[in-house]
Design a binder for these strands. Sequence first.
RNA 1: CGGGGUGUGGCGCAGUUGAUAGCGCGCUCGGUUUGGGACCGAGAGGUCGAAGGUUUGAGUCCUUUCACCCCGACCA
Length: 416
Amino acid sequence: MRLSQLFTKTRKDPPADEVSRNAQLLIQAGFVNKEMAGVYAYLPLGLKVLENIKRIVREEMNLIGGQELSMTSLQPKETWEVTGRWDDDVVDVWFKSKLKDDTEVGFGWSHEEAIVEMIKQHLGSYKDLPINVYQFQNKLRNELRAKSGIMRGREFLMKDMYSCSTDEAEHNKFYQSAIEAYTRVYKKLGLGDDTYVTFASGGAFTKFSHEFQTVCEAGEDIIYLHRGKNIAVNEEVMTDENLANLDIKREDLEQVKSVEVGNIFDFGTHKSEQMNFGFTNESGDRQLVHLGSYGIGISRVMGVIAEKFSDKKGLVWPENIAPAQIYLARLGDDQTIIEAADKLYKILQQAGVEVLYDDRDARPGQKFADADLIGIPYRVVVSSKTISGEAYELKKRTEDEIEFVSEDELIKKFAA
RNA sequence: CGGGGUGUGGCGCAGUUGAUAGCGCGCUCGGUUUGGGACCGAGAGGUCGAAGGUUUGAGUCCUUUCACCCCGACCA
């Protein structure tokens, strides 16, 4: 991408109406645009990051047998009345509207009921199970108060997966594989060291659910870490009884603020019973489906990463999800420099390297400042110096030292 | 939803006891520049969130309303 053609611009100052670091930086660098409180549009750079996060999640979900699909935002009232969750007193985040003929519809804040209704149409026999499906979907939630930039909005992108198993044993096996897949996801996202499998409230169905909590000062949750066991306990279930069951001593725990970046649930057969979601088993009898639910807040993860990986100069994207690998800065506008930079840009592109090419007629200081603000992992400079020295300048976003590398070395380092 | 705060060119802000709406950044044009957000000159751009009211006269006073931010509550 040539920066001269990118329609978004960076700003010198963060917006005055944002306090959260993630929103300030993402708006300042041109990744997102605020449409209204808690509602953000993703611009070209931001969308790249979002897609990179999705790619990592998708790979892992496919690996454990997930099938991707896409449900709808518009949902019928009847589906939710079955479980009592159409009621605003039960679910207080509904956005609701009406069709022209006064039929009531809701906007999906979750897709649990909808998925069950859909799978019912395709499930008859135990031979059809297990079924594991997932999607990336915008969730719409009428939150009383939006806050923390893209970390808690009224419209946000979520990966939600649902597992349908014949029995508890089959469910547990998948549930365990999901925990492992999630662990790999957060590791690939660069959050591995700070993300803990956390015991949290299981609601009405099971003793615990498992949350994935990332240590982060901007978070809204309080968890207690057990670094030795690499697990954590959510404040909401910190009882002596629970600690005893988990074989954890209170004095070994460390209290931290964190953000819930994922949550997995065992529904048992509770919801299946409510919704009459069953199949015919080997004996020819009707049996209820054992359900599980597995979420990852994709856009929230992006906010957490912006929040955690940044410095005074701007964003610092992990290589796996950065909108580009190289920020190619052309210093000067002599014909020879332009030609050399254009050529390198083309060569890198052909080698499959994602490059953000700063071909603008701007001063060096501005280009360096933007490179830092946008947070591309590596910066390559083409200037009169590099031409006479016959080597390009390479600098890592996280380091101050500059190294000089040849074209071949660049390609070797960055080509996939 | 309770409490507090803020709305003035694209962005960040100033605007006194009510009297022709300003500054910085950004933008356009010309020139000089070019290794950490350049400089000089000339320009463009605003029904002051909205509606109503008081007044000879309202960005400024009054009423209503909307939006945004913060704290709290809420977050199966």
